[in-house]
Design a protein around this nucleic acid. Sequence first.
DNA 1: GTGCATTATGTAGTAAATTTACAAAAAAAC
DNA 2: GTTTTTTTGTAAATTTACTACATAATGCAC
Lengths: 285, 285
Amino acid sequence: MTSEPNLLAVIQRQLGELNKSEAKVANAILNAPEDATRSSIAALAAAAGVSEPSVNRFCKRFGATGFPDFKLQLATSLASGVKYVSRSVEFSDDINTFPAKLFDNAINALLTAKDGLPLKAIAQAVDQIAQARRVYFFGLGTSAAVARDAEHKFFRFNVPVFTHEDPLMQRMLAASAGVGDVFFFISHTGRTKVLVEAAEIARQTEATIVSLTAEGSPLAEKSHCCINVQVEEDTEQYLPMTSRLVQLVILDVLAAGVTLRRGEGFTPHLARIKDSLKDTRFPTS
Amino acid sequence: MTSEPNLLAVIQRQLGELNKSEAKVANAILNAPEDATRSSIAALAAAAGVSEPSVNRFCKRFGATGFPDFKLQLATSLASGVKYVSRSVEFSDDINTFPAKLFDNAINALLTAKDGLPLKAIAQAVDQIAQARRVYFFGLGTSAAVARDAEHKFFRFNVPVFTHEDPLMQRMLAASAGVGDVFFFISHTGRTKVLVEAAEIARQTEATIVSLTAEGSPLAEKSHCCINVQVEEDTEQYLPMTSRLVQLVILDVLAAGVTLRRGEGFTPHLARIKDSLKDTRFPTS
DNA sequence: GTGCATTATGTAGTAAATTTACAAAAAAAC
DNA sequence: GTTTTTTTGTAAATTTACTACATAATGCAC
């Protein structure tokens, strides 16, 4: 019983794969979702211009047991307050609107990414990292911060992790790579020249190239394993926001994957790392 | 259409003023509110040990037009309140389950945070940053990566931004602060000694202390303006994940706030920064 | 306490809504 | 152009919710 947090987004996304009358129902619901939660099946069927059983079939297609159950899920989804279209911030926005918009966008990006997770690539990447002799996380700009975050996460697994923001260091380290080394490149566009060049250099060694980037990009093509993320970044926004969040969560996923790989016996090790911080904090009152 | 934010609380409150069978219905609903939203009127009547019209009268008493409408309101109320339970990763999880769990947790954290956004503090922080002569972002551990990310965001506003991960640098910079300097401290716990000490030092100057941390923590107490985030981090997880995401989105919110402050005339400046990266990328095919 | 009035609750019937089974129509494949 | 498959609608069956009314319970006066 996975109650979808954003049913409208799911409907929107599947719109293309629906047949004619189901699409009519979908549009009727997307146009007036609030109304749909209060309508009877007859009313909705009339609004969509289809028969009642068509509406019923539509509901079942989206995982509901029937029309009432669907209405319930829809109402729940609407109540959670996430709007399904990404909402750009306008200059007319004030403190009451724009923070919520940004949160909605972030939530939406995660929802979308969750639906299209490249599980195979993720499993591969976990394998590579778990066995690696050394792992280098390379990114530039915003992705450098993501790489830094990855370092903070992965050192916990006794894997020697390295991060460098300097492209020259990245090149040199790539050139000196060998078997067992994993180069993990992070880039939203996958087109940053110096990063792609570093990947190219690393590729000529025995090292493994893993990348977290856009599908079909130059960087993806240089990689043995590419975790491609689908996020349509609002390019008008000037600040990349959502892609970075998705990248971070995917790195969390990879870290969790490695933990699971290490097995239950590994938890004391993680606990010891955590405990090491105890004396750096003021005790909780 | 006053959709009560917390219908269950209203029912609870009026429990004393209800007559016998209505009270039975109330208890049945309070005991299993989720079930109630999925039950038919007959099922709920049976569960409460009363007749169907009693349930119907109960619904009308609480402002609904009938049973279906009541169920809708209840579902809405439940959805906006408790949200979803966070799901911890187990060692028995495989690639098909744990990535989705982590995404769900992340989404949840953002949903929860969105509901409890401290808008006043955010507005204050935007004011401070927008007018600042210099802004220092200080964090340690995972929060250092967040601070680094903040630097990448805020330099775009012509505000001199600085980040330092070295606690000694943080202390010294704090000591040398003056009017117009903003110290922005990032810490999930708000109890990291060296960071709190740096805040204390900065507090003795004319600088403004802003913090993104837990309410009531030692760090929060040293701050002129504290943006407190409510995230219950799964402490068994050993890796802090969700709090960091929320911090990042809040920094996005602050950045957006500063952009809005700068006004429409500022967009060319942002566009110029973006364009400066054009030649570093391979063109889109 | 008894009878009357008022309120509370349940019964039964009715209307409405939803679902199922099946048939007609449309689309796709051969 | 026919057959097969898929899609859609019709009509009947079933479930669900509501209304009107009857009965039971409660409160109050005497």
